[in-house]
């Protein structure tokens, strides 16, 4: 009985095998190189979430869109799927490289390993990776590492939180407990303490990796924020991707304040109904980085290696939309200058 079933299942694989033998044996490295007529052909590989995640993938997309418009270039965007392996990421990058895309941008640190391998095989193609600089795995001569000083921006919104808080008690809701988000937390805590050394910072991560649903679960965000607000906080920083909307909703219900992340969340259409509680956002200008990178390639000014987008170059900043922090802006600027000048060193780990 079982034998028959197994044999029968062969048919399924048959289709695949037939396809293999019929079409097998194409060259691996054919078609590399650039588009030919001079115009750039950009390949962009997103991390999980992709275009439309209202977060850093989206930000990257904005940069791409801007570059597209400006330079009249062609672009293809690919996206990672949940739970995939490095091999799949590598394959994605290779497909782009094979397809003649140059430059290729990988969004997210998860591409670090795969990118290192692919870049070696395509020395003529220019690569960029967002959010990662790991010497040894992705530091080839044709790789630009675009990283951000999230802790610096977070420091400033921490300052804003401390200044705005009446209770001396503020909250931090992290989406998923990863080193990247811990950077946000470290900067934020430092910023708060810089203003009010005895202030309380409540910290909560919604989920633990590999459960990344913490970036997508507004209900959890709302519960966590409510807990903080009930415990006396009156400003909550939502470094939690899509779960942030729940944080803002809680703040709105309780008459508290929220701080957004990644983009200027005050202006996001999806958060229109809670925008009046968003006093500021820690803007991480992935779009600027992507645009700059494309421009550098377009201008034949590509530079490999780590490019840190920090406060100084406007890679991270605090948003002022809504005018909720106009009163404290001078103080913020003051801190900003101190960071830029190196007077204040912002820690990147907690």
């Amino acid at each position: 009985m079982l034998r028959k079933r197994g044999g029968a299942l062969a048919a399924i694989a048959m289709a695949g095998v037939l396809a293999l033998s019929a079409c097998g044996g194409g060259g691996e490295d054919s078609g590399a190189g650039s588009g030919g007529d001079g115009a750039l052909k950009i390949g962009l590989a997103y991390d999980i979430g992709g275009r439309g995640d209202q977060s850093f993938n989206d930000s990257a997309a904005r940069g791409l869109d801007k570059a597209k418009q400006e330079f009249g270039i062609e672009a293809t965007e690919l996206e990672a799927s949940q739970g995939e392996t490095d091999a799949q990421k590598e394959d994605r990058l290779r497909q782009l490289a094979e397809g003649g895309y140059n430059p290729i941008i990988a969004v997210g640190f998860a591409y670090a390993g795969p990118l290192g391998k692919v870049a070696k095989d395509y020395p003529d193609v220019k690569f960029a990776i967002i959010d990662d600089y790991t010497p040894g795995t992705d530091d080839g001569p044709n790789i630009a590492n675009l990283t951000f000083a999230e802790e610096q921006g977070s420091f400033l919104v921490g300052v804003a939180a401390a200044l705005k808080s009446k209770t001396g008690n503020v909250g931090f809701v992290g989406g998923v407990n990863t080193p990247l988000i811990q950077k946000f937390q470290a900067g934020y805590e430092a910023g708060v303490k810089a203003v009010k050394p005895d202030a309380t910072v409540q910290v909560k991560y919604l989920t633990q990796p590999p459960d990344f649903s913490g970036f997508n679960d507004p209900a959890k965000g709302e519960t966590a924020a409510n807990g903080m607000l009930d415990a006396g906080a009156d400003v909550v920083y939502a470094a939690a991707g899509g779960s942030g909307s729940g944080v803002f909703r809680a703040a709105k219900d309780k008459g508290a304040m929220g701080i957004g992340v990644d983009s200027d969340q005050y202006n996001l259409p999806s958060l229109a109904d809670v925008k009046d509680v968003i006093i500021t956002s820690m803007v991480k200008s992935v779009d600027v980085a992507v645009y700059d990178f494309i421009k550098s390639v377009n201008d034949n000014a590509f530079k490999a290696g780590n490019k840190i987008y920090d406060l100084e170059v406007g890679g991270v900043k605090y948003a002022t939309s809504g005018g909720k922090i106009d009163d404290i802006q001078p103080r913020l600027e003051e801190y900003k200058q101190k960071i830029i000048s190196g007077e204040i060193k912002v820690p990147s780990t907690t």
Partner: peptide, 17 residues
């Protein structure tokens, strides 16, 4: 359906009241 909707995205809908 959501990619081009205001406030929506490839993986999320626009806000619901």
């Amino acid at each position: 359906y959501f990619t081009d909707a205001p406030g929506g995205g490839q993986k999320q809908s626009p806000p619901i009241e």
